[in-house]
């Protein structure tokens, strides 16, 4: 009888240890899943307080101004792309030949000359690291015909790029959108929204004279010239109860 009680006690103690271990493991798995954004509406909350959608890398931890891009092409010749002081918008795509997600973008950029880029007269510039960090043969194979590729590790350092692929949209010398994604469609969506937000902000902060000119231009574009009767309604608008 004593032996039975001792055996049962030992068995219960072992089971208790096993259950405690399982609970702890379960808690760790839940915590890890939560950090990856699984559950709770797909939002992940990290200690930094930043929130990203599932599958999208966090933005840069430090913002930077925009810089021109200077480097070499895959054939070793010099290429300089003006990003500042231009009238057009520039989309910088920081990519490597090695990362698997980048392959999706290399393929997309090679197949399409017209990428339906967000912004005004937007031009895509692919930025890889310098030759000492890149595969020349891979780059020759992947570099698209229609879009410039500039190899410069300096640009990666200047823009403090955290991950590849990473996209930065520069308009009027300012970074108006940035981020990473797993498909071109996601990048388009992310940056189109950022560009629209930036446009609205810019309009809101125009000085009075600029706002007036902007309103005039918009009205003219809609066929409404100064003095148009529609600008001076004679009937008072009906008041809704």
């Amino acid at each position: 009888m004593t032996a039975l009680i001792v055996s049962l006690t030992v068995a219960v103690a072992l089971l208790a240890i096993l259950v405690a271990g399982l609970l702890r493991s379960h808690a760790e798995i839940l915590r890890a899943l939560h950090e990856l954004g699984v559950g709770e509406g797909g939002k992940a909350t990290r200690s930094s307080g930043l929130k990203t959608r599932e599958g999208i890398a966090e933005p840069r931890t430090e913002t930077t101004p925009a810089f021109d891009i200077s480097g070499t092409k895959p054939d070793g010749a010099t290429r300089h792309v003006g990003v500042l002081g231009t009238e057009h918008t520039t989309l910088l795509a920081f990519m490597t030949t090695g990362c698997s997600t980048c392959q999706i973008f290399w393929k997309e950029f090679s197949e399409r000359a017209d990428l339906d880029l967000p912004g005004l007269d937007t031009r895509l510039v692919i930025v890889t690291k310098s030759l000492e960090h890149e595969s020349e043969s891979q780059l020759e194979k992947l570099a698209p015909r229609h879009h410039p590729v500039v190899m410069t590790s300096q640009a990666w350092d200047q823009y403090k790029i955290p991950v590849s692929p990473y996209f930065i949209l520069v308009e009027a010398g300012k970074i108006v959108g940035e981020g990473s994604a797993g498909s071109w469609k996601q990048v388009q969506s992310l940056l189109t929204q950022a560009y629209r937000d930036s446009t609205i902000r810019t309009r809101a902060h125009r000085p009075g004279s600029d706002r007036e000119k902007y309103a005039d231009d918009e009205l003219r574009a809609a066929g409404i010239e100064p003095g148009d009767p529609s600008l001076y309604p004679t009937d008072a608008p009906e008041v809704q109860p």
Partner: peptide, 24 residues
């Protein structure tokens, strides 16, 4: 101005300008 050079050719470019060198 940004100074650009390639194989002995050097130029200072104002803002908004770009340069593309290649070989034949």
């Amino acid at each position: 101005m940004t100074q650009i050079s390639d194989r002995g050719i050097t130029v200072d470019l104002p803002a908004g300008w770009e340069a593309d060198f290649y070989r034949r």
